Computed example of a mutant assay.
Amino acid sequence: MRDFLDRRTLLRSAALTGIALGGAALGAGSAAAVTVPTISGCAAWGARPPADPLTVLPHRPVRILVHHTDTPNSTDYSQAHAFALARSIQDHHMDDNHWSDTGQHFTNTRGGYLLEGRHNSLSTLRGGTEIVRAAHCPGQNDIAIGIENEGNYMTVQPPAKLWNSLVTLCAYVCSQYSISPNAIQGHRDYRDTDCPGDVLYSMLPQLRKDVAKKLGG
């Protein structure tokens, strides 16, 4: 574990030296280069402002929780569809659940588009020292990054584009927050729910391996 944290510290140092965001790599040329994914912020997809002030907590999260949206497995893989999905999730969470904003920190679509969910999630991730309080899992909202994956994965596997973008996002989150890939878990590990689906849940050991490989260990 000490060696793992040392590698994460090196990656964080590389990020702080000014390596650009948006598809570049942290520690380029090293064995542990981590791709910085392109993540569309709330303004890009047309988010509503939060209904209430959001709380940014002065500590790092300790794990990642993987979810599925339990929405149809759309074959529209466009960015326009991804943005529309983000708006529909926010509307549901705010209007039906009466939450302050989108519940999860990030949304990953079947077309491989990554989007900020709750406001301030992207800026705190880039900073690497804080987390915005979310609403994706009771008891975990202050300490776990929630990632929603578009679709229902009870009986089918996620498409390759979604899987690849999930691996890339998880690796970046792990590198920014010094989270071990072993701390990537499913919603059902902390809640009585089918989420993230039987098939996607069964793939979490492979996700941990793929993320660890991205991190160089």
Rank of each mutant, 00 (worst) to 15 (best):
K213Q: 08
H93Y: 08
Q79G: 06
A144M: 00
D91Q: 15
Y113P: 01
C174E: 05
V56C: 13
N97K: 13
S88C: 02
V156I: 14
T17P: 10
E148H: 11
Y77H: 08
P158Q: 13
R133P: 08
G186A: 15
V36S: 11
Q90Y: 04
L125V: 11
Y113T: 01
R8K: 15
A80H: 03
D70L: 10
D91C: 12
A24Y: 14
K161T: 12
G29K: 03
G112P: 02
E150Y: 11
D76E: 02
L207A: 05
S78F: 01
A82Q: 03
P205F: 00
L125H: 11
D101F: 01
C42G: 06
D6L: 15
H119G: 10
H98Q: 09
L207Y: 01
T55D: 15
A212L: 01
R118F: 00
R60N: 10
A84C: 06
T17W: 06
S165Q: 13
Q104P: 12
S165Y: 05
A160V: 03
N164G: 12
L21D: 12
G46N: 06
M203S: 08
A31F: 13
A44W: 07
G139Q: 00
H67T: 07
P159Q: 07
T102W: 06
L115E: 04
G111F: 05
G18K: 05
V56T: 12
Y153E: 04
G27Q: 10
A20Q: 08
R110G: 12
H187N: 14
P138K: 02
L114V: 09
N152Y: 07
S78P: 06
P159I: 02
L5V: 13
W45Q: 11
T38A: 13
L125Y: 09
D96K: 13
V199L: 03
M203C: 06
S30R: 12
A32I: 14
P72T: 03
S30A: 10
V36M: 13
I131M: 03
R48Y: 09
V211F: 08
L11F: 05
H67W: 00
S121E: 01
I39V: 08
S78E: 01
E148D: 15
L215Q: 11
L11V: 11
V62A: 15
A84T: 09
P158D: 03
P37F: 04
E148K: 04
D101V: 04
S180W: 06
A171H: 04
N152M: 14
V34E: 09
P196I: 11
R60Y: 10
I19E: 14
G18P: 01
S13T: 10
S202F: 03
H119C: 04
A32H: 15
D101Q: 08
V173K: 06
R60Q: 14
L16G: 13
E150N: 02
Y153M: 11
Q104M: 15
T17D: 02
S13V: 11
A171E: 00
I19R: 15
H68S: 15
H119I: 01
V36G: 01
D198S: 09
G23L: 00
R208I: 00
Y177N: 11
C174I: 05
Y190A: 08
F83A: 09
A84Q: 14
P138Y: 07
P138N: 12
A25K: 13
T71S: 01
Y113R: 09
G197R: 09
L215A: 04
P50A: 15
S178N: 12
R133L: 04
T69Y: 04
G197T: 07
L204E: 00
